[in-house]
Write a protein that binds this DNA or RNA. Structure first.
Lengths: 122, 122
DNA sequence: CTCCTATATGAACAATTACTCATATACTCA
DNA sequence: TGAGTATATGAGTAATTGTTCATATAGGAG
Protein backbone atom coordinates (compact mmCIF):
# COMPACT_ATOMS: atom_id res chain seq x y z
CA UNK A 1 0.00 0.00 0.00
CA UNK A 2 1.66 3.18 -1.17
CA UNK A 3 0.53 6.03 0.95
CA UNK A 4 -1.05 9.40 0.33
CA UNK A 5 -0.74 13.09 1.10
CA UNK A 6 2.74 13.67 2.41
CA UNK A 7 3.80 17.11 1.30
CA UNK A 8 6.17 17.02 4.20
CA UNK A 9 9.25 15.53 2.71
CA UNK A 10 10.19 12.61 0.49
CA UNK A 11 8.14 9.86 -1.07
CA UNK A 12 9.68 6.97 0.78
CA UNK A 13 7.56 7.27 3.88
CA UNK A 14 7.35 3.91 5.59
CA UNK A 15 3.66 3.82 6.37
CA UNK A 16 3.91 0.72 8.50
CA UNK A 17 6.71 2.23 10.56
CA UNK A 18 4.79 5.42 11.11
CA UNK A 19 1.70 3.67 12.31
CA UNK A 20 3.57 1.24 14.53
CA UNK A 21 4.42 3.77 17.23
CA UNK A 22 1.54 4.93 19.35
CA UNK A 23 1.91 8.67 19.69
CA UNK A 24 1.85 10.65 22.92
CA UNK A 25 -0.93 13.12 23.50
CA UNK A 26 0.27 16.65 22.95
CA UNK A 27 -0.85 17.71 26.42
CA UNK A 28 1.31 14.95 27.88
CA UNK A 29 4.27 16.10 25.81
CA UNK A 30 3.76 19.61 27.12
CA UNK A 31 3.71 18.40 30.71
CA UNK A 32 6.88 16.43 30.14
CA UNK A 33 8.74 19.35 28.65
CA UNK A 34 7.53 21.57 31.48
CA UNK A 35 9.21 19.29 34.02
CA UNK A 36 12.40 18.97 32.03
CA UNK A 37 12.55 22.72 31.39
CA UNK A 38 12.49 23.30 35.12
CA UNK A 39 15.62 21.17 35.38
CA UNK A 40 17.28 22.44 32.23
CA UNK A 41 19.02 25.40 33.81
CA UNK A 42 22.14 25.16 35.99
CA UNK A 43 20.90 27.78 38.44
CA UNK A 44 17.59 26.01 38.94
CA UNK A 45 19.32 22.66 39.32
CA UNK A 46 21.48 24.07 42.09
CA UNK A 47 18.51 25.74 43.76
CA UNK A 48 16.45 22.57 43.67
CA UNK A 49 19.34 20.43 44.82
CA UNK A 50 19.85 22.64 47.85
CA UNK A 51 16.15 22.99 48.65
CA UNK A 52 15.67 19.25 48.42
CA UNK A 53 18.29 18.81 51.14
CA UNK A 54 17.35 21.66 53.44
CA UNK A 55 15.02 24.56 54.00
CA UNK A 56 16.76 27.80 53.01
CA UNK A 57 15.89 31.47 52.73
CA UNK A 58 16.40 33.51 49.59
CA UNK A 59 19.42 35.11 51.12
CA UNK A 60 21.11 31.80 51.89
CA UNK A 61 20.55 30.65 48.34
CA UNK A 62 22.00 33.85 46.93
CA UNK A 63 25.07 33.34 49.08
CA UNK A 64 25.45 29.68 48.16
CA UNK A 65 25.04 30.31 44.45
CA UNK A 66 27.04 33.52 44.41
CA UNK A 67 24.17 35.27 42.68
CA UNK A 68 22.08 38.34 43.34
CA UNK A 69 18.98 38.15 45.48
CA UNK A 70 16.97 39.29 42.49
CA UNK A 71 18.19 36.54 40.18
CA UNK A 72 17.43 33.91 42.81
CA UNK A 73 14.04 35.39 43.53
CA UNK A 74 13.10 35.34 39.85
CA UNK A 75 13.98 31.67 39.59
CA UNK A 76 12.06 30.90 42.77
CA UNK A 77 9.05 32.60 41.28
CA UNK A 78 9.37 30.36 38.23
CA UNK A 79 9.58 27.25 40.40
CA UNK A 80 6.77 28.48 42.60
CA UNK A 81 4.49 28.92 39.59
CA UNK A 82 5.12 25.29 38.67
CA UNK A 83 4.44 24.30 42.30
CA UNK A 84 7.84 22.66 42.49
CA UNK A 85 8.92 24.59 45.58
CA UNK A 86 7.00 25.45 48.72
CA UNK A 87 7.59 28.33 51.07
CA UNK A 88 6.67 29.74 54.43
CA UNK A 89 7.10 33.16 55.86
CA UNK A 90 8.84 33.95 59.14
CA UNK A 91 8.81 37.67 59.67
CA UNK A 92 10.55 39.22 56.73
CA UNK A 93 12.23 36.01 55.78
CA UNK A 94 10.84 33.54 53.26
CA UNK A 95 11.93 29.94 53.70
CA UNK A 96 11.79 27.68 50.68
CA UNK A 97 11.84 23.92 50.35
CA UNK A 98 11.41 21.36 47.61
CA UNK A 99 9.64 18.13 48.44
CA UNK A 100 8.41 17.40 44.92
CA UNK A 101 9.14 13.69 44.64
CA UNK A 102 8.80 13.72 40.89
CA UNK A 103 11.36 16.45 40.29
CA UNK A 104 13.72 15.20 42.97
CA UNK A 105 13.48 11.72 41.48
CA UNK A 106 14.43 12.96 38.05
CA UNK A 107 17.28 15.00 39.46
CA UNK A 108 18.57 12.12 41.56
CA UNK A 109 18.37 9.69 38.65
CA UNK A 110 20.36 11.99 36.39
CA UNK A 111 22.82 12.66 39.18
CA UNK A 112 23.34 8.96 39.78
CA UNK A 113 24.08 8.49 36.12
CA UNK A 114 26.59 11.32 35.93
CA UNK A 115 28.44 10.38 39.09
CA UNK A 116 28.30 6.62 38.56
CA UNK A 117 28.91 6.02 34.88
CA UNK A 118 32.24 7.78 34.98
CA UNK A 119 35.08 6.16 33.08
CA UNK A 120 32.89 3.64 31.28
CA UNK A 121 31.95 4.10 27.64
CA UNK A 122 31.24 7.81 28.01
CA UNK B 1 29.99 32.97 64.85
CA UNK B 2 28.69 35.80 62.75
CA UNK B 3 29.98 35.49 59.26
CA UNK B 4 31.94 37.64 56.89
CA UNK B 5 32.01 39.03 53.35
CA UNK B 6 28.51 38.68 51.99
CA UNK B 7 27.89 41.59 49.67
CA UNK B 8 25.32 39.40 48.00
CA UNK B 9 22.19 40.24 49.86
CA UNK B 10 21.06 40.61 53.43
CA UNK B 11 22.90 40.21 56.72
CA UNK B 12 20.89 37.33 58.05
CA UNK B 13 22.79 34.62 56.25
CA UNK B 14 22.48 31.37 58.15
CA UNK B 15 26.07 30.24 58.06
CA UNK B 16 25.30 26.82 59.46
CA UNK B 17 22.58 26.25 56.88
CA UNK B 18 24.84 27.26 54.04
CA UNK B 19 27.59 24.93 55.06
CA UNK B 20 25.29 22.00 55.77
CA UNK B 21 24.58 21.20 52.12
CA UNK B 22 27.44 19.67 50.19
CA UNK B 23 27.52 21.43 46.84
CA UNK B 24 27.59 19.79 43.44
CA UNK B 25 30.62 20.30 41.24
CA UNK B 26 29.88 22.79 38.51
CA UNK B 27 30.90 20.34 35.80
CA UNK B 28 28.32 17.90 37.17
CA UNK B 29 25.67 20.60 37.15
CA UNK B 30 26.51 21.34 33.52
CA UNK B 31 26.17 17.68 32.59
CA UNK B 32 22.84 17.47 34.33
CA UNK B 33 21.44 20.51 32.59
CA UNK B 34 22.71 19.18 29.26
CA UNK B 35 20.62 16.04 29.67
CA UNK B 36 17.55 17.92 30.82
CA UNK B 37 17.88 20.47 28.03
CA UNK B 38 17.77 17.66 25.51
CA UNK B 39 14.41 16.68 26.95
CA UNK B 40 13.11 20.19 27.50
CA UNK B 41 11.65 20.67 24.03
CA UNK B 42 8.37 19.08 22.86
CA UNK B 43 9.76 18.28 19.41
CA UNK B 44 12.80 16.51 20.83
CA UNK B 45 10.64 14.62 23.32
CA UNK B 46 8.50 13.32 20.49
CA UNK B 47 11.53 12.45 18.37
CA UNK B 48 13.21 10.59 21.22
CA UNK B 49 10.01 8.84 22.19
CA UNK B 50 9.58 7.54 18.65
CA UNK B 51 13.23 6.61 18.18
CA UNK B 52 13.26 4.76 21.48
CA UNK B 53 10.44 2.56 20.19
CA UNK B 54 11.56 2.03 16.63
CA UNK B 55 14.18 2.84 14.04
CA UNK B 56 12.92 5.60 11.75
CA UNK B 57 14.23 7.67 8.89
CA UNK B 58 14.19 11.46 8.86
CA UNK B 59 11.31 11.40 6.49
CA UNK B 60 9.17 9.20 8.74
CA UNK B 61 9.81 11.49 11.66
CA UNK B 62 8.86 14.55 9.64
CA UNK B 63 5.61 12.85 8.69
CA UNK B 64 4.86 11.71 12.24
CA UNK B 65 5.59 15.12 13.74
CA UNK B 66 3.99 17.12 10.95
CA UNK B 67 7.17 19.14 10.60
CA UNK B 68 9.56 19.94 7.80
CA UNK B 69 12.49 17.67 7.01
CA UNK B 70 14.81 20.55 7.81
CA UNK B 71 13.41 21.17 11.26
CA UNK B 72 13.67 17.48 12.12
CA UNK B 73 17.17 17.25 10.71
CA UNK B 74 18.33 20.20 12.81
CA UNK B 75 17.03 18.56 15.97
CA UNK B 76 18.63 15.26 15.02
CA UNK B 77 21.92 17.05 14.62
CA UNK B 78 21.52 18.44 18.11
CA UNK B 79 20.80 14.99 19.54
CA UNK B 80 23.59 13.47 17.49
CA UNK B 81 26.10 15.95 18.91
CA UNK B 82 25.09 14.84 22.41
CA UNK B 83 25.39 11.19 21.29
CA UNK B 84 21.82 10.59 22.35
CA UNK B 85 20.77 9.16 18.98
CA UNK B 86 22.56 6.75 16.70
CA UNK B 87 22.16 6.38 12.97
CA UNK B 88 23.04 4.21 10.02
CA UNK B 89 22.94 4.90 6.34
CA UNK B 90 21.10 2.75 3.82
CA UNK B 91 21.56 4.29 0.41
CA UNK B 92 20.20 7.79 0.59
CA UNK B 93 18.22 7.09 3.69
CA UNK B 94 19.47 7.71 7.22
CA UNK B 95 17.90 5.57 9.91
CA UNK B 96 17.98 6.90 13.45
CA UNK B 97 17.50 5.16 16.78
CA UNK B 98 17.79 6.05 20.43
CA UNK B 99 19.10 3.41 22.80
CA UNK B 100 20.47 5.81 25.39
CA UNK B 101 19.32 4.14 28.60
CA UNK B 102 19.89 7.27 30.64
CA UNK B 103 17.73 9.53 28.51
CA UNK B 104 15.07 6.89 27.94
CA UNK B 105 14.99 6.26 31.67
CA UNK B 106 14.42 9.91 32.44
CA UNK B 107 11.75 10.16 29.78
CA UNK B 108 10.00 7.03 30.97
CA UNK B 109 10.10 8.14 34.59
CA UNK B 110 8.54 11.49 33.76
CA UNK B 111 6.02 9.81 31.53
CA UNK B 112 5.00 7.39 34.27
CA UNK B 113 4.46 10.29 36.60
CA UNK B 114 2.32 12.26 34.17
CA UNK B 115 0.16 9.34 33.11
CA UNK B 116 -0.13 7.76 36.55
CA UNK B 117 -0.53 10.57 39.03
CA UNK B 118 -3.62 11.87 37.28
CA UNK B 119 -6.49 13.02 39.45
CA UNK B 120 -4.52 12.95 42.67
CA UNK B 121 -3.31 16.10 44.34
CA UNK B 122 -1.99 17.60 41.13
C1' DC C 1 3.32 56.75 62.23
C1' DT C 2 8.71 56.12 60.30
C1' DC C 3 12.76 53.69 59.17
C1' DC C 4 14.90 49.37 58.19
C1' DT C 5 15.20 44.87 56.07
C1' DA C 6 14.00 40.64 53.21
C1' DT C 7 11.84 39.59 49.30
C1' DA C 8 9.19 40.37 44.92
C1' DT C 9 8.65 42.34 40.57
C1' DG C 10 8.63 45.16 36.12
C1' DA C 11 11.41 46.76 32.37
C1' DA C 12 15.27 46.22 29.58
C1' DC C 13 18.86 43.66 27.40
C1' DA C 14 21.95 40.11 25.69
C1' DA C 15 22.14 35.39 24.70
C1' DT C 16 20.03 31.34 23.21
C1' DT C 17 16.70 28.70 20.66
C1' DA C 18 13.63 26.47 17.22
C1' DC C 19 12.25 27.20 13.10
C1' DT C 20 12.19 28.61 7.73
C1' DC C 21 14.27 29.09 3.42
C1' DA C 22 17.69 28.25 0.17
C1' DT C 23 21.27 25.48 -0.96
C1' DA C 24 24.89 21.91 -0.38
C1' DT C 25 26.12 17.11 0.15
C1' DA C 26 26.01 12.31 -0.76
C1' DC C 27 24.09 8.59 -2.54
C1' DT C 28 21.37 5.79 -6.50
C1' DC C 29 20.24 4.74 -10.98
C1' DA C 30 20.48 5.16 -15.89
C1' DT D 1 28.81 11.20 -16.85
C1' DG D 2 24.07 13.53 -15.24
C1' DA D 3 19.46 13.61 -13.21
C1' DG D 4 16.94 12.54 -9.14
C1' DT D 5 16.38 11.88 -4.14
C1' DA D 6 17.18 11.88 1.06
C1' DT D 7 19.45 14.35 4.23
C1' DA D 8 22.50 18.12 6.12
C1' DT D 9 23.58 22.74 6.87
C1' DG D 10 24.28 27.96 6.91
C1' DA D 11 21.99 32.33 7.32
C1' DG D 12 18.28 34.77 8.97
C1' DT D 13 14.47 35.58 12.23
C1' DA D 14 10.98 35.69 15.80
C1' DA D 15 10.30 34.03 20.27
C1' DT D 16 12.01 32.75 24.65
C1' DT D 17 15.13 33.01 28.50
C1' DG D 18 18.26 34.36 32.41
C1' DT D 19 20.07 38.12 34.22
C1' DT D 20 20.62 43.16 35.93
C1' DC D 21 18.90 47.38 37.68
C1' DA D 22 15.64 50.08 39.88
C1' DT D 23 11.81 50.04 42.56
C1' DA D 24 7.74 48.10 45.01
C1' DT D 25 5.84 45.33 48.77
C1' DA D 26 5.42 43.64 53.33
C1' DG D 27 6.72 42.73 57.74
C1' DG D 28 9.55 44.23 62.26
C1' DA D 29 11.33 47.52 65.58
C1' DG D 30 11.17 51.95 67.50
Amino acid sequence: MIDVNQETCCNVVHQEAIESVEQLELSVVEQLSESFKALADPTRIRILYNLSRRELCVCDLAEILGMTQSAVSHQLRYLKALRIVKFRREGNTMYYTCDDAHIIGLLQMALDHVTHAQGRDE
